[in-house]
Amino acid sequence: MNDIVLFALLTMGLLGATLAVILYFVAQKFKVIEDPKIDLVEDALPKANCGGCGYPGCRNFAEVTVKSANEKQNLEGLNCPVGGNAVMKQVAAILGLEVEEKEPLIAVIRCNGSKANSPAKVQFDGASSCAFAHNLFAGEGGCQFGCLGLGDCVDSCDFDAIHMNPETGLPVVNDKCVACGACVKACPRGIIELRNKGKKDRRIFVSCINKEKGGPAKKNCSVACIGCSKCFQVCPYEAITMANNLAYIDFEKCKLCRKCVEVCPTDAIHELNFPLRKVKAETGAQEIQEEKPSKVAAVATAESASQETKNDNIV
């Protein structure tokens, strides 16, 4: 009995020792010399491998970052949108550098052509793919710029941050969004934009990208931007530009004064997470019609934080 135990111990021990020696030499022979910082940087990264930084994965991003730090002594053009400032600071600390604070971004859906606002004129029947439908026809509502509602953006999201609202047929971004940009690339119509998250999550944007003239645009969708330039004229900060019958608000210049929202005749400009308007607001504010802007604001505040960007002109 003892013999068996002894024999087993000996053979297994010998086998283990021999293999360990072999492994040691093999490991030495095939050793890859790598900057240990790469591992450290990689550890600091979120490891989502989303590609939001523009590189194929976190490991690759770490390699590029370390290379840039070694060669150029800066981290210009390198940003992990998922980790945000916290992670980039950590990365910079590992590499002995400093980074500029970057404002966090969030994906914004610039279309409000919901089933109610842009009623379907035809029915689509086919593969559930926006890219395919975009090639096939203009859209159920007839707007050739608007959301097709088949969810390529939802499929592209690795963070569970974008979902379809079955009532409106439009996608909704929640606060899990890390601004990796996958949905921006996935949308065949370029509706989604990464915009400044804003103080207290407050944002103002034109929720339309229709470049047609007012008439045809309005024919297909009641909340289309008709290119009337009223917002452009009222903006005190020159944040609004007009091109191809379409207004665009530069989020870096916008001071969130909400004047443009008031003047927009089609409710194409959206404000999110602002407090409810009072009839007489702070100094300088004009008389505001109660119904239309407050509806937007009321719904927006009533929404839970996770539903903040839900486009809300549904009946």
Partner: peptide
């Protein structure tokens, strides 16, 4: 602009 067969202008 006029609508073509796929509904684009």
């Amino acid at each position: 602009d006029a609508l073509d067969s796929s509904g684009y202008r």
